[in-house]
């Protein structure tokens, strides 16, 4: 049996069926991401002073990934327009650029942004021990200026064996620059460019540390929501790339030769999905990277 209304429109809705289908699917996607974003808002509003970190992600890399998604959103709509104009060659190239953009986005996330987090450590201090590490934290000045206190010391963990060995009483952390010059006003706000940990090693008594973990989803609520939302978003990017690849391969040229409008409609609905994924990222980028 032939599937009805894949190309022509249904008289009562004025739409071909796949378009109704994709919008119903996107409606469910709004609820899926909506739930996660409301969890983000809830956790952030409830965070104790100083416990919601700022400036831990690489802003230029995030901005570049945002630009890549925007460019791919343009190329996918141009690919659709090329099909409408019956220019298969142009379609092929636009689609290729779209697919490559999606792949670059994922590669940057999976080989650079995420792994870097798993190598970065943060020792959350017990509240009563904060004063002891004042020279790294600079909280007296921050309180005077009305800024949130610093409650953890982050950087490169020099002695990994301390995590498991109870005989080692101290963590040795190669400090992030903020903790080397805590009273420098330049460190009051996050930096634009990523600054790696310094050679300045601080020794922190294990007794004063609530927990010392890498910046994985287990580190705090910020990273939990960051990995959940960007992970789910990344899966969507992957899904889009797979669908686009199918429509770019020679197998889809047969659809085009049979009826070009059919392929154009397929590109349009998968493009709608892709724009939605881009739209989610437009909110993810400022919420996690900038604010």
């Amino acid at each position: 049996m032939e599937i009805p209304y894949t190309i022509s429109t249904r008289p009562d809705t004025g739409l071909w069926n796949a378009k109704v289908g994709i919008w119903l699917f996107l409606a469910s996607e709004v609820m899926l991401f909506g739930g996660l974003f409301s969890a983000y808002i809830f956790l952030r509003l409830d965070a104790l002073p100083g416990e919601w970190p700022h400036g831990l992600l690489n802003v230029p890399v995030g901005a570049m990934n945002t630009a890549i998604l925007i460019i791919s959103s343009v190329t996918v709509v141009l690919a659709w327009a090329a099909l409408k104009m019956r220019r298969y060659r142009a379609y092929w190239w636009y689609m290729l650029v779209t697919i490559l953009c999606g792949i670059i986005f994922l590669v940057v996330k999976l080989t650079y942004e995420w792994p870097q987090k798993f190598e970065h450590y943060g020792a959350k201090l017990k509240p009563e021990a904060l004063a002891k590490y004042e020279k790294y934290l600079g909280n007296e000045r921050r309180t005077e200026k009305g800024l949130e206190p610093r409650v953890e010391i982050t950087g490169h963990l020099e002695n990994h064996e301390a995590l498991a060995d109870p005989n080692i009483k101290e963590f040795e952390i190669g400090l992030d620059p903020v903790y080397v010059e805590p009273n420098n006003p330049a460190n009051d706000r996050p930096h634009f460019f990523y600054v790696p940990p310094t050679d300045h090693v601080a020794k922190i008594d294990k007794e004063d540390v609530e927990r010392n973990t890498s910046f994985g989803p287990w580190h705090n609520q910020y990273f939990a929501t960051y990995f959940t939302i960007t992970g789910l978003h990344g899966l969507h990017v992957l899904g889009g790339v797979l669908v686009f690849t199918y429509m770019w391969l020679p197998v889809s040229k047969k659809v085009y030769q049979r009826n070009p409008e059919h392929l154009a409609n397929r590109v349009e609905v998968s493009g709608l999905f892709w724009h939605f994924v881009d739209l989610i990222w437009i909110f993810v980028f400022p919420l996690f990277y900038l604010l």
């Binding site: 630009a67 925007i70 959103s73 980028f285």
Partner: peptide
Amino acid sequence: YVMVGVTLLVFTALTVALSY
């Protein structure tokens, strides 16, 4: 479409700038 794409890129830069 191309103009909208360029606008989006400009506004991305603007978002970053405004956050500082």
